[in-house]
Design a protein around this nucleic acid. Structure first.
Lengths: 205, 205
DNA sequence: GAGTGTGGTTAACGCCCATTAACCCGGCCA
DNA sequence: TGGCCGGGTTAATGGGCGTTAACCACACTC
């Protein structure tokens, strides 16, 4: 029942990637050595080179992978299309929240270690991120047509910052159960977008 | 007219700290060498050791400094007290936004490089951060008494993520003028808090 | 005008760490 | 049975980098 004839339900490679993601997120790309990554999966040191060209390659695969999955997920939700733009926006938010809660280390890496990539990989990741942002911007502008494009883009970035804040909560005591966190983040994000669209609710300081 | 008899309006030390902050934020603590920091202020390499005990000491001073200034600023605004809790919350948000926009590199460092500190410094910074969060939590709960404490705390963390998102905007084209960014971020933050307090606005998905 | 301290310099040391070399062993195919 | 090969091992190599040593020069005092 535990291991059927599934050939490699979780390959060595994936195992390494997951541990590397965790370690990179905890102590930074430069802060963790290959020996540590190896130790985390039970092999030691240079054994990793049987699976990856180098430390950089691991980071590249992680960042490209997460960017692709985010974009694919977003596109899927947009394509499915809800009954309304509001429904699509809610779906995007739900998806991003799931992602942030399921893959905390990757979310952390996502905006921390981008510059450690080689030029080509960095460009690719940035392009994927840009497309993901634009996906959101379009939906936001459908829901709130009054919102200017630059404003919508800034708001989207800000809401990403909000949704991606969950890693910071992990270390703190008194955390909410997962469902409550999801619900709260969703309300926060929707509230923020709604407020972005309200023109001049605070004319004076 | 350029340099009057002002003795040291900007000391070497401060100059080093500012450049170090910028570089650390750009490429990470481990990603920048002491030679680069030196070069950024016109001296080279080990000359820095006339001003700091080591690279770690620079980071420690930066992180402790920013944490103290954030907390002090927050306490000041709370002590001044507005006409209402709402006014205090708005003041806190304004202050944090100014900080985030004025000291982008420090904001970045703030939650990226904390673990590179020696135990003692890290504890101190964490304590300051915690006090700053609790300051906000109290004010938020005054404004929205319906909000549970854990929920308020999570919301505050999330809003910090939102407000601290500005560094991510810098590299992107089409940025808003500063005043517009301030106004937008403020609306987003207030909208998020307001939404956090609304109970069950989205019962079903 | 000698003496001292502050803020530099360059050269050298030593460690850490990614990567490579050389070797090894247990399955699998013929 | 014999050889290939995937996936390990430990040892060696080499570069980068934080830090220290040794030395220097100006400014300012006595």
């Amino acid at each position: 029942m535990s291991n059927a004839q599934a050939p490699a339900p979780i390959s060595r490679r994936e195992q390494i990637l997951r541990e590397a993601a965790r370690l990179f997120a905890e102590r930074g790309f430069h802060g963790v050595g290959v020996d540590e990554i190896g130790a985390a999966v039970g092999i030691s040191g240079p054994g990793l080179y049987r699976h990856f060209a180098g430390k950089d390659a691991m980071l590249a695969e992680l960042l490209v992978g997460i960017s692709e999955r985010l974009l694919d997920g977003g596109r899927m939700r947009v394509a499915e299309g809800g009954e309304s733009p509001e429904a699509v926006l809610r779906a995007l938010i739900d998806g991003h929240i799931d992602f942030a809660l399921d893959d905390r280390p990757l979310i952390t890496l996502h905006d921390r270690e981008l510059d450690r990539l080689r030029e080509a990989d960095r460009k690719r990741v940035r392009q994927l991120q840009r497309q993901y942002v634009e996906l959101w911007v379009e939906v936001v502008r459908e829901v709130y047509p009054v919102c200017a494009e630059v404003e919508a883009r800034s708001a989207v970035h800000a809401v990403f910052g909000l949704l991606n804040s969950t890693p910071h909560l992990s270390a703190r005591a008194g955390l909410l159960p997962r469902a409550a966190t999801e619900s709260l983040l969703k309300r926060l994000a929707l509230g923020a977008f709604a407020a972005a669209a309200d023109r001049d609710p605070l004319p004076a300081k």
